[in-house]
């Protein structure tokens, strides 16, 4: 990678060197001609040896002078270039630095330095406009997600209540009941997706900001205790190694969501009669479950990245885990080894 300014400097240096180097033979020819003319005019005849000595002298002096001027020229170029470019490109580098530190999540519009140069002024104005509309679009999208999921809740409640009323109908056949139940099941999935979307938006909007020191060991034990019946009902072996007293900083609700989602996934996607292990050590939580093939890593933590109609999940569980981890600077990783899915959460203990 090269800087914009060095690019022009390099060309100039190459040009200057070429010109000066080419000038050496030209000078030589002219000087020898002049020297010969002087000798002829004064009827001086040199021996061949003396003539050779003179021409060597001329070449040495010419080369020496050329190199001297070349060095002077180069030093001048570099110094001038440096001082000009510093002044000339200052607003550009300033704007560049501002954009580099711009974070859409913070939604803080960078302020660009005023400049007299037309091009840079135009650049800053365009950047300003671009960033402004990005922020507006981002806010709009967030607000939309928030409002939409909020507004959905009441119609969902209506549909659910109507279906449950219909369920009370005395003349219902088994077949009709089955249809109602299937519908309710799909509805509960929509409800869950909606809840998770709302949660994601809330986290993005910087809610759940309060932090506390959480006894992760105790919380994890509790979570595993809650989920054990579900693992058992699927004939899965759930084992854990949880040393006491490991803590982490964060919001309790969010930490619970991370643990619940990771363990739910492990149980949900474990192969039949497979095993699940939960290992906690200072700064690291590893949840593993047996599986058949490697998951698509790049899709894994994206919203709706892995959803399909055959899977019961909401497609948002790992996106939530990722979002929460990002907030606290934790790292969540996935790897597949020995027919096991490993999810690792690295945090500051």
């Amino acid at each position: 990678m090269s800087k914009l300014l060095n690019l022009s400097l390099k060309k100039m240096i190459v040009f200057a060197v070429t010109v000066l180097v080419c000038s050496i033979p030209v000078y030589y020819v002219i000087f020898t001609k002049l020297w010969q003319m002087e000798l002829d005019e004064h009827h001086i005849i040199l021996t061949d040896e003396a003539g050779r000595e003179d021409s060597y002298l001329i070449i040495v002096i010419l080369t020496g002078l050329t190199v001297l001027f070349l060095v002077l020229l180069l030093v001048g170029f570099i110094l001038l270039n440096r001082s000009i470019s510093k002044r000339l490109w200052k607003p550009f580098y300033h704007s560049l630095e501002k954009i580099r530190h711009f974070d859409l999540n913070q939604r803080e519009k960078p302020s660009f330095e005023a400049t007299e140069i037309d091009e840079f002024k135009a650049l800053n104005q365009s950047l300003d406009k671009l960033i402004g509309s990005s922020i507006a679009a981002y806010n709009q999208q967030k607000e939309f997600a928030d409002n939409a999921s909020h507004e959905l809740q009441t119609p969902l409640a209506i549909v659910q209540s109507k279906l449950e009323l219909l369920m009370q109908n005395q003349s219902l056949t088994t077949e009709q009941y089955a249809i109602i139940e299937e519908t309710l099941k799909a509805l509960s999935r929509v409800t869950r997706i909606n809840k998770n979307l709302l949660l994601l938006t809330k986290i993005e909007n910087s809610q759940y900001m309060d932090r506390a020191t959480i006894d992760l060991s105790a919380l994890l034990e509790e979570t595993i205790h809650t989920f054990t019946p579900f693992a058992q009902s699927k004939d899965l072996e759930l084992s854990s190694a949880i040393p006491p007293g490991i803590t982490l900083e964060g919001n309790r609700i969010l930490v619970e969501i991370v643990l619940n989602n990771l363990i739910t996934n492990a149980i949900r996607y474990c192969t039949p009669q497979g095993g699940i292990t939960v290992n906690l050590s200072p700064g690291k939580l590893v949840i593993a479950n047996s599986g058949l093939e490697k998951l698509r890593q790049e899709q894994l933590f994206k919203r709706f990245g892995t959803t399909s109609s055959t899977k019961p999940g909401t497609g948002l569980g790992l996106a939530l885990v990722k979002q929460i981890s990002q907030r606290y600077g934790w790292e969540v990783r996935y790897r597949f080894e020995n027919n096991c899915h490993y999810f690792t959460l690295a945090f500051q203990s």
Partner: peptide, 26 residues
């Protein structure tokens, strides 16, 4: 005298956990 679905019972017993697991057999 009301018909109650298994999912309503599951949610009553285990709260959100039952819902997350999508498994009401217990």
């Amino acid at each position: 005298n009301k018909v109650i679905s298994k999912s309503a019972l599951a949610e009553h017993l285990s709260g959100e956990v039952a819902d997350m697991m999508d498994n009401y057999d217990f």
